[in-house]
Simulated assay, not measured.
Amino acid sequence: MDSGIGGLSIVRVLMQELPHESIIFVGDQQHFPYGTRTTENIRELALKISQYLVAQNVKLLVIACNTATAAALPILQAQLPIPVIGVIEPGARAAIEVAQTSRIGVIATDSTIRSQAYAQALHRLVPETNVVSQATQPLVSVVEHGLTGTFQAQQMVNNALAIFKEQPVSALILGCTHFPFLEYEIHHCLGKEVVLIDPAEETVKTVHSRLAQTDQLADQSDPQSTFYSTGDQLELLAGVNRWVNPQAKYQCAHLNL
C-alpha cells in the first residue's frame, strides 16, 4: 500500500527479487498526499486499506510509504493478523552500512520529517550518527504527475536539496518511495559521490526473510499482480508501465474505499 504511486519503487524490486510472488498494490491517490495530513488521519486511511488487503487473503503487508510507516506501523502490526513491514527501519540499516558514523542526510515528506522517525531509527543503530533532515514535500508531486526527467523536475530538486550544499553528507536516504524515481536529478544536483539509499532493497530482503521463516515463499510459475487506485487509475497505469516493467502490460482498476 502507498499514498500514491511512489510505492511502485518497492513493487519493482519485489518483482525482481521475488519473481514468484503475486502482488496486490493499492495506491491511495484519492487522498494523496499523506505528507501534509495529520497523524490520526494517516492512521485511519492506512488501517482502511490494510483491512481491505487482509480481506483479499494476503499473507504479508508492506507499507510502501514512509509517511504511513512513521504514522501507523505499530498500530497495523498490533491490529492485523498478518506480518506488517515498513520501510524506515530497513532504510536506516542500509544507510548505516554505507555511511557508518559519517553524516547522513534524509529527505522525506513534511509528516515523516516532523515525526523524526529516520533520525530516531539511525540513532538507535548508532547513537553518534550525525543526521541532516530536510522536508522535500514538493518533490512527491513531481513524481506523482509524471514530471521526472524534465527541466522543471531538476530545478525543483536543486531548490529542495540546497541545504546539502551547505551541510554535505556522504549518504542520502530517499525517505519517500517516490524519490528513487528522481535518482538522476538528485545525482545531478549532489554528485555521484553521495550514495543514495533506496530503502526498497533492504525492505524486500526483510520480506524475503519473514516469508522464508514461516515457509511461505511462493513457487508460482505464473504469479498475478493487480494494481488498484482510489483515484486516477490511468495515472497509476502510466506509472506501472513506465517504472515497474515497461515490457509488460498490466491492468489497473479503481477501488472505492
Rank of each mutant, 00 (worst) to 15 (best):
L147Q: 15
A99F: 12
A238W: 10
T230P: 01
A135T: 09
V195S: 11
S170R: 09
P199W: 15
I113E: 08
Q167W: 05
S170P: 00
T129C: 05
T226E: 12
V132R: 00
T148S: 15
G105K: 01
A162C: 00
F179H: 11
D232V: 02
T206C: 10
Q29K: 02
L255F: 06
Q213E: 13
T150Y: 04
V62L: 04
T150A: 07
K249P: 08
I23T: 06
N66T: 05
E202T: 02
F179N: 05
S9C: 07
T214E: 11
D110F: 10
F227R: 13
T206Q: 02
T203W: 09
H145E: 14
V126Q: 15
R12A: 05
E40Q: 15
H187K: 14
V204D: 06
R242V: 09
L237H: 09
V204K: 00
N159M: 08
L125P: 03
A212T: 13
V194E: 00
G105Q: 09
I163P: 00
A119I: 00
S225Y: 12
A153P: 09
G6A: 07
L47D: 05
F227K: 12
L255Y: 06
N241P: 02
T109V: 11
A162L: 07
L76D: 01
A162T: 14
V169G: 03
R210P: 05
R43W: 01
S221R: 04
T101E: 10
F164R: 00
I10F: 05
D2Y: 02
P127W: 05
R242N: 13
V204P: 01
T69V: 12
S102L: 00
D215W: 01
P246R: 05
D198M: 15
E183Y: 05
E144K: 13
V244Y: 10
P199C: 09
P223N: 01
P199T: 12
P81Q: 12
L76A: 01
E89H: 10
K165H: 11
K165D: 13
V157C: 14
V143P: 13
V106P: 02
A70L: 03
A99C: 11
Q120R: 09
R124D: 12
T136W: 08
V126A: 01
L217V: 15
S50E: 03
V207Y: 07
Q51D: 14
I5S: 11
E89N: 00
A94H: 13
V244H: 07
M15V: 11
L8A: 03
H20D: 14
A135P: 12
H254G: 09
L80R: 14
D232W: 04
T230W: 03
A108H: 08
A71G: 13
D222H: 14
Q167L: 03
A99R: 05
N159W: 05
E89V: 15
Q51W: 13
D232Y: 07
F25A: 08
V98R: 07
A71N: 13
H123L: 04
L47R: 09
